[in-house]
Design a protein around this nucleic acid. Structure first.
Length: 575
DNA sequence: GCGATCAGCT
DNA sequence: CACAGCTGATCGC
């Protein structure tokens, strides 16, 4: 049970995951995920009245959370007052005090939390510094390192405070609780893409379980302050803070602690000239992290909300046109969804378990098929259905958004209108990487283009440009430029980040991946089948799987046989 | 009657 | 052991 009272010291004008008491005065509300203990007061008459009186008060959440919330009739009154924000899309929000007219600007970025469908962490950036509210999160070691928007200039952003889910911060809780089993798919009736991912076939999953050391995350972020949101029974706030303290900056060094992202394995080799190749090989140098801001495709148009998008200076400046038209997407990322990436798992060999695309299909350039032939491809084992012309994006069996992670019943009304998330294939320890967990990945090897953009876009420049955002216009203060987006980015000349207020981009409310978008494989990733984007140090006792062993596993998977492993290998796979 | 809270339970 | 949520009892408005 979260002990978080809803407000953060740095930004007391907003309330997160609490909607009662003091929070009734908030200028904006944020919901990290659709669990009851994070929705306290959300349907209370007091808040309902507040909404009726304060027309500028909105609730911000992920598109999936919005959809889930509105599934319950008891929350329908929120319908016109919820603004869904795309994952990993920095969005400016004006917090207006309706009485005085006073305005405060913040930029919020939703980061996938891997806890349940739609769950996110909130990264707030504004005049009072950068703070991260984690909600309930279940991220694997190394996943924070993959979150581009947690970084800037090749380093972790300078984060003032982390409001942290500390459920498992005590070693004695390393044993993961058993999953709540669920029974209905009804909750996802409006989210066919997610429904599509649900399966009752447990054999599609692979687990590689190990204890989370939810601390890994904090020590990576290394904030100035860390506030525990969850105080486990039998302990106290002080004790948890004591546990967290050594992971915070003050006790480690007076200097800000920065960690490089690690090396990005060469991911883009084709369609790029040598110069661009170099540009994209970002993590071989201590250069800025590519910030491929996702472009919202379903922003609710609202004058107080500005999704920030990235355009290249090489492109004609047309923010509106750019908004929603270009969406970086990682085919490789999507590949992760072929497996349940166990958060608790963290098998250091997990990267080797990434499976080649099952459906690179007709749209993929031929060279993609040639990549790393030493490792068997799914195509070898799975015969394509002639009717199945969809890309694998639509067919991956699981994601956290799809209930691959924790999926308890969300609403249960005594009036019989209950709706439940079902995730019958949910596995206790399963977890999706951040891209997979939200279903629509980032870290692009693949760019999704709208039909509108397909014809004219300079794709390579976009890709390149996306690495180095800077505020172009409409930023309320210079501070925003320096602190909010990329405080220490010295490579900020190439790209503009613009606010694209105005026209809504494409669809609304959770019908993601519009039909008119076309997958365009920008390049290949030669290492994608045997290695990761980032080199994460292996645990000393960990052993890299051999090619023959991988092939054996793939074959077993392809034939639907269960995988029984020797104890020695159980760190790799644990069904 | 409704909501909030708590205990007990799954 | 905790998580997340249900039911039922109790209390206050």
């Amino acid at each position: 049970m979260s002990s978080f009272q809803g407000q953060m010291a740095e930004y007391p004008n907003i309330s997160i995951d609490r909607f009662d008491r003091e929070n009734l005065r908030a200028r904006a509300y944020f919901l990290s995920h659709c669990h009851k203990d994070h929705m306290k007061g959300l349907r209370a008459p007091a808040l309902k009245r507040r909404l009726e009186c304060s027309l500028k008060v909105y609730l911000y959440c992920s598109p999936v959370t919005k959809e889930l919330l509105l599934t319950s009739p008891k929350y329908r009154f929120w319908e016109k007052r919820i603004i869904s924000i795309e994952i990993e899309t920095p969005t400016q929000i004006s917090l207006v005090d309706e009485a005085s007219g006073e305005k405060e600007e913040i930029v919020v970025t939703l980061l996938p939390a891997g806890h349940c469908p739609g769950s996110v962490m909130f990264l707030f950036q504004g005049d009072n510094g950068t703070v991260l509210y984690t909600g309930d999160f279940r991220l694997a070691k190394g996943e924070a390192a993959r979150m581009e928007l947690l970084h800037c200039g090749g380093r972790v952003k300078d984060i003032q405070s982390v409001y942290l889910d500390t459920t498992f911060c005590d070693p004695k809780f390393y044993q993961i609780p058993s999953r709540v089993h669920v029974d209905k798919l009804d909750m996802f009736r409006n989210m066919p893409d997610i429904l599509h991912h649900l399966t009752t076939d447990r054999s599609t999953q692979i687990h590689a379980c190990r204890h989370p050391k939810i601390e890994d995350f904090l020590s990576y972020i290394c904030p100035v302050n860390a506030y525990p949101n969850v105080i486990p029974l039998g302990t106290t706030v002080d004790k948890v803070i004591e546990i967290l303290k050594p992971l915070c900056r003050s006790s480690q060094s007076t200097e800000p602690k920065y960690k490089p992202l690690g090396k990005l394995k060469r991911a883009r080799t084709t369609h790029l000239d040598s110069e661009e190749e170099e540009e994209n090989d970002l993590f071989d140098d201590p250069l800025p992290i590519p910030l491929r801001h996702k472009v919202p495709n379903q922003q609710t148009c609202h004058p107080e909300v500005f999704p920030m998008t990235v355009v290249s200076q090489n492109q004609p400046e047309n923010p509106r046109q750019s908004t929603g038209c270009i969406k970086a997407k990682s085919m490789k990322t999507s590949l992760w969804a072929n497996f349940i990436d166990c958060e608790e798992s963290n098998s250091d060999s997990e990267e080797e378990l990434q499976i080649p695309a099952s459906c690179q299909g007709d749209r993929s350039p031929p060279h993609q098929q040639k990549t790393d032939t030493e490792v068997p491809q799914w195509d070898v084992f799975f015969k394509r259905n002639d009717d199945d012309t969809d890309c694998g994006l639509e067919n991956f069996p699981s994601s956290a958004e799809a209930g691959g992670s924790q999926s308890p019943k969300l609403f249960s009304d005594s009036d019989g209108e209950s709706t439940h998330i079902s995730s019958q294939n949910s596995s206790q320890s399963t977890h999706i990487s951040e891209q997979g967990s939200q279903g629509w990945g980032s870290q692009s090897d693949t760019v999704l283009l709208s039909s509108q953009e397909r014809n004219g876009g300079d794709i390579t420049s976009l890709n390149k440009g996306s690495c180095r955002p800077r505020v172009k216009e409409n930023l309320p203060a210079s501070q925003m430029e320096q602190n909010v987006l990329c405080p220490k980015d010295t490579y900020s000349e190439d790209v503009n980040v613009v606010f694209s207020a105005g026209e809504p981009t494409t669809v609304s409310s959770g019908k993601h991946i519009p039909q008119e978008r076309t997958l365009l494989t920008l390049s290949t990733n030669p290492d994608s089948q045997s290695s990761s984007d980032f080199e994460i140090p292996s645990t000393p006792e960990a052993e890299l799987p051999k090619q023959e062993h991988l092939q054996y596993l793939y074959e077993k998977l392809a034939t639907g046989e269960s995988i029984v492993l020797e104890k020695r290998k159980s760190s790799l796979l644990d069904t």
